[in-house]
């Protein structure tokens, strides 16, 4: 895998190969990741998938930004960007 860019709430963020979404966002100066569905601010906290504070939405699903590798062309939004309703 090589590096590339993914989209974060509509803005391009560069990442290096193997970097997690969360680390790439921190590298781009993004600390406040948005709000979780309960309305509380989200952020990188434990870095190991334990605290669930870093949830972001990829393909409609919530994933831990610290565990999920960034991929070129991925569309990532804050967890509080309303999920689309599938029918």
């Amino acid at each position: 895998m090589t590096g590339g860019t993914f989209s974060w709430n509509g803005r391009d963020v560069a990442f290096r190969a193997g970097e997690s979404i969360g680390a790439a966002l921190a590298g781009a100066g993004v600390d406040a990741l948005g709000h979780d569905p309960a309305g509380r601010a989200t952020r990188w906290f434990c870095g190991i998938g334990a605290c669930q504070n870093c949830l972001v939405r990829v393909g409609g699903r919530l994933v831990e930004a610290c565990l999920t590798p960034a991929e070129d062309g991925l569309v990532v939004v804050s967890a509080d960007v309303a999920e689309e309703i599938d029918r």
Partner: peptide
Amino acid sequence: VPGLAKLR
């Protein structure tokens, strides 16, 4: 309810 597939 297909939307449930996207939840955890």
